[in-house]
Amino acid sequence: MASVAPATATVPLPADWRDFLALTKPRVIFLVVFTGLCGLLAAPVAMNPVLGFTAVLCIAMGAGAAGALNQWYESDIDALMKRTASRPIPAGRMDRQSALHFGVGLGAFSVLLIYLATNMLAAIILAVSILFYVLVYTVWLKRRTPQNIVIGGAAGAFPPVIGWVAATGQVSLLPILLFSLIFLWTPPHFWALALFMEADYAKAGVPMLPVVAGEKNTRIQIFLYTLPMVAVALLPVALHLAGLIYGLAAGLASLVFTILATRVAFRQSVAGDGMKPEKQLFGFSILYLFGVFAALAVDRLVLA
């Protein structure tokens, strides 16, 4: 007699387009696409609008592919964290194999398309960024070291370089500075999040800095990374690679960022405030990156 599966058996529900969109981490993609677009607009080359749109679309697809492969690999720990438990795989709306196929296919297509639309160097850097996020950050670093965000932050720093290279075909000093800015911005941004999400990370066994080294050390590290980040943000002005619009915006935004990071680092009591300074820094850090990159794009377009 054939056995009947119990009613409580877990069977993934049919995924729809919204689940595949969720795999790409659209909120993250928005910032990635914006920095990539600003890198393209800051380049000293007028790019064909259709090819420029295609390049930015490829950056978005590459980032989406990396996000899908990240969720494929981390579905076990996503199920343990409140912030990620509703994602398609842990929520049971999609099986892991579908996410894997989607991520690989989307990533391969994005690299091929940007090569055909722009140049080989842009395609190579896009491929490296996807592989770095998936293999170096997700597979190798995230579950092994509290430095996961520090090293893994390089993956999110590639988009402005890709945008610049798509337009120019080469790498120069300004996109390297933009890469460095995002690289140094990533630890304060994510450690501020980790401070008020520490319990989630601890439950999932992810060795984020607050879990491993404690809150006090994390607060100091946030401040210490903020200082070189601000210096790099102002370097384009000092090196005459950007003008007054960028200088004023970057200077003001960096001042606010430093004040918030100082409040997080050196405050004496955390009782009863619901981690308000940490949440303020995390929220402003997103606005900071948008503002600085937008100012650069406007500055370069005005100067042109």
Rank of each mutant, 00 (worst) to 15 (best):
S3M: 14
T8K: 01
A9H: 07
A15G: 03
D16R: 01
W17Y: 13
T24L: 03
K25A: 03
K25H: 04
R27C: 09
V28N: 11
F30Q: 15
F34W: 11
T35F: 00
G36W: 05
L40E: 14
P44A: 00
M47D: 07
M47K: 07
N48Q: 13
P49M: 14
L51S: 15
G52H: 08
G52T: 10
F53T: 15
C58R: 12
I59T: 09
L69F: 02
Q71Y: 05
W72L: 12
R83V: 06
A85V: 08
R87G: 11
I89W: 03
F102A: 14
G105S: 09
S110T: 03
L113W: 12
I114N: 06
Y115H: 13
Y115I: 10
Y115N: 14
A117N: 06
A117K: 09
A117Q: 03
I124E: 11
V128R: 00
L131T: 06
V134Q: 02
R143P: 12
R144C: 07
V150S: 06
V150K: 06
G153W: 10
A154T: 09
A157N: 08
A157I: 05
I162N: 01
W164S: 01
V165H: 04
I176E: 07
L178A: 04
S180N: 11
L181A: 14
T186W: 07
P187T: 07
F190N: 00
L193P: 12
A202C: 09
A202R: 14
P207L: 02
P210M: 09
A213T: 12
E215R: 12
K216T: 13
T218M: 05
T218N: 06
Q221N: 10
Q221D: 06
T226G: 06
L227W: 10
M229T: 08
V232Y: 00
L234P: 14
V237G: 11
L248S: 12
L252P: 15
L252C: 14
F257P: 04
I259D: 00
I259E: 02
L260A: 04
R263W: 05
G272A: 09
M275F: 15
E278P: 07
L287N: 13
A297K: 08
V298R: 03
